[in-house]
Design a protein around this nucleic acid. Sequence first.
DNA 1: ATGTTC
Length: 474
Amino acid sequence: MDASNLKQITPWLWEFPTAGNMRVPARIYGDRALVAAMDDAVIRQLANVAALPGIVRAALAMPDAHSGFGFPIGGVAAFDPDQDGVICMGGVGYDIACGVRVLHTGLRREEIQPHLEALMDQFQLLVPAGVGGTGGIQLKAGELDRVLVQGARWAVKQGYGTREDLERLEDGGAMSGAVPETVSDQARKREKRQLGTLGAGNHYLEIQCVEEVLHPSAGLLGVASDDVLISVHCGSRGLGHQIGTDYIRILGEAARRHRIPIPEKELVCAPIRSSEAERYYQAMACGANYAMANRQMIVHLIREAFQRVLPGVQVRTLFEVNHNTCRREDHPVEGRSRPLYVHRKGATRAFGPESPQIQEPFRRTGQPILVGGSMGTDSYILAGRESSEDAFASTCHGSGRALSRSQALKRTPGRDVLTQLTSRGILIRTNHLKGLAEEAPAAYKDIHQVVEASTQAGLTNKFARLSPLGCLKG
DNA sequence: ATGTTC
């Protein structure tokens, strides 16, 4: 992207001014190099989003943004129900409430090292992974509806976790507003035996070590140097994908009736107060609850693996954050708190300390966020700040793709990626070499640069830098 | 991301 077409607001924030049918400007967070490296489609898609009814302040892109289906990945947009604002499928994406759970093993680097191979083997054995992957639990008749409403709380009630896990999940593990009747038979059919499965693509389960503590309050999150953590990155599987697919048609018809122009298929939307948008929100909340239950089931499998290899180890939840959602949240608009519908696609919430909109354990630090690097690179723990409110309390979610999947496939064969990572001492487990090539480190932006831009822009503070020890890829 | 182009 040619940054000379953009107005520099700060060295970490750029603006594409309102033009044509845009109602608000488009703004991109990132340093000059990150913005210059973004594909032009990011601006085109942000301009499309900026033209939607009821959009507030600006259409935003985080420093890890790249083009997505209809709406950039790394995109944020908020809509006001009193200004004919809309709910937009593309602002959530297909993998509803994809997110990251972060666990603490209670172990230090030297304690885990002799058991790493055995642990990775057990993870591979116990956690089903891959496209179309089943092997998750078979739900009894009627049970799925309870999962869709209760989310991770359902899993804990079944004995797959603890109350302490739930205290550290968004909404205590159950997003409100879920109505199972809005989820199609087709979506239910695709769900069969996928609860407790990792999925494919950039989804992973990684053992990580705290390399560097970067904030004096890191201890409040329970993180210290050389601690061994686990990150689980996955989402709502076939069920969430089918909900997205189903509502493209429903929201598309609504958009036509309300005469909202839809330049790209997945940008379909409907007025927040229409029955179609209400139903989409209810179905999306079901997808979010499925994703949170899914991660909770995987946490249970991780604990099972530890029981086999290192019995007695207590694996605790540190936090979880979703990065593909639309949520009703209160935000100040022109000095007054307003209920807005905030879409974050490949972007996470980043409320600062004291915010009533985050779980109680995080009120002193701000919302904790795991920003995943690509496979084999560092990750960061960040926490939200009050100044993130400029971006509707949002920040980046990962390092962000620099190459498309097909470009990455051409660049490096999967076997070479495996060799490179192994030679750096990272244990890789996968059943799918092609997937490894698509997710090669070279296919991603530089995580350090993305995190630095987010920090300099005032969206988040750095709390810790993590390095990978072992990775199970979907 | 995804019953890997319904």
